[in-house]
Design a binder for these strands. Structure first.
Lengths: 260, 260
DNA sequence: CGACGATTTGAAATCAGTCAAGAGCAGTGG
DNA sequence: CCACTGCTCTTGACTGATTTCAAATCGTCG
């Protein structure tokens, strides 16, 4: 439908992070066919097992990917925001191996997979950018695995807060030091492999130490360097384009052994 | 160097799993330039922070990806075997965000990244296959996150044993029921977010229950269905092409709460 | 104002970690 | 062929971070 609509602009902007896009390619991206759909909080956008025919671009709001284990435990893999192609993984693989769910009120542009594949292989810059988008997602998955597998509750929580801050800032959706975190503590727990009870105590600990302050769902980072240090946060894994200075470049050393 | 060498054949075979490859494309793949290098056990193939100019294809032996947290804890993200393009993620992103290390004696073919990128965008079938290879890697990362975040020690260990069995079998490198697991228990621990002491007890538990038997580093799966059930294992995330029947398709239900 | 979901708090239970020592095994060199 | 060396694997006892269970408080929305 929409041909020269700027609706897809956030996607073009994000993709240009990964790979410079010639004006023509950008035009072509903006001209991709799509259909806009709104989702209410907690609604499923894609369900594990689906065979999505469309890739979905978040236009506004937040969504998260997750999967449920046989024992009922849920693991959240990533949080997505405006400009993210949040389901290239599922749509390109054919069968969805995880679900995508709305966190709050979300607007999504559904783009046919064939259109995505066509533009990716007819315009190498676009293809590279999209491929990289999926690779950066994968890098974030790895970091989250490390987070959940080898860091204690406090470190995990601080790490997530830093990541979210930086990604929001990069996407131009907020400030690094002060933002709305649209997740319940239970969802936070599912992202960090903890229980909501423990997340609660952990957040209070971070606040008690003056690293953050909270009011309802808004977070203020009072001491970025301190929080990055507490969160063992080094933004390299986000592969951000510009040289934003951030993170606690902690010395890496030592043998294997977990959760400090 | 080698032009019509069949050395790259395992790569072509693996890629064909993800996307049918016309004969021409297969030829072109086999004709990619490469350099072969051997690594001894524990040697680093790529180090976090490197800027790899080559993508590496495992020709023989096993390698693993990992990253170290600030507290010294190491998390292993995946195990790779012959035919795997084990470092597309790092090489395509420019800067390595994790390391690739030899598990045992490993032979690797280094293929220049530009050659990879060129063939990927000049031959869409190859490009799709490679893209999918990276997407399946990502799917495995997600499953490991779930494993580490939401499953208990026994389930995690059983899950890993099932995955390895199935991947070996699919790659034509061994049998699902009986194989060499070339990892120390410490490495196993780092893959599962546990300590080597606990892995040891866990493996003995699985053996004690008759699900597996072990001798040195060889594993025999005595009861596939039982192990898959114990490991909450559903192979969907591997996106295997053929319909090999496997896994315990456990009912997914319930709310969030961890590690049964 | 009432109700429901989310957050907070407390106390008890447990899985997994820590520390430490011993046993097994493979390779080396005499 | 055997002692020596250095890992890796096992085992035991104890500790501790996180979970569980349960109840109270808070906040928001109709």
């Amino acid at each position: 439908m929409a041909l020269e609509d700027p609706i897809l602009a956030p996607m073009a902007a994000k993709l240009a992070n990964w790979q410079p896009l010639p004006a023509e390619d950008r035009e072509a991206l903006l001209a991709l066919p799509f259909r806009t759909i709104s989702f209410r909080p907690q609604e499923y956008i894609v369900r594990e097992g689906d065979r999505p025919q469309h890739s979905c671009l978040i236009l506004s709001g937040f969504a998260f990917r997750h999967k449920t284990a046989g024992n009922g435990g849920r693991q959240i893999f990533s949080i997505h925001m405006a400009g993210d192609l949040a389901d290239l993984h599922n749509s390109l693989l054919g069968e969805a191996d995880h679900s995508l769910q709305a966190l709050n009120h979300v607007q999504v542009a559904f783009i046919p997979v064939e259109a995505i594949q066509h533009i990716a292989f007819s315009r190498p810059a676009v293809g590279k950018a999209m491929w990289r988008e999926t690779l950066v997602d994968a890098s974030i998955f790895r970091e989250w695995t490390l987070n959940v597998g080898r860091r204690n509750a406090r470190t995990r929580a601080a790490h997530l807060l830093c990541e979210f801050a930086l990604r929001l800032e990069t996407a131009g959706l907020g400030e690094r030091t002060h933002y709305q975190l649209p997740m319940t503590q239970e969802q936070l727990a599912d992202a960090l492999g903890l229980t909501s009870v423990h997340i609660n105590r952990t957040l209070m600990g971070l606040a008690g130490d003056g690293l953050i302050s909270r009011a309802h769902r808004s977070v203020r980072i009072e001491d970025w360097a301190g929080l990055a240090e507490a969160g063992d946060f080094d933004s390299a894994y986000l592969h951000l384009p510009a040289k934003v200075p951030h993170g606690a470049e902690a010395a890496k050393a030592g043998r294997s052994s977990p959760r400090q």
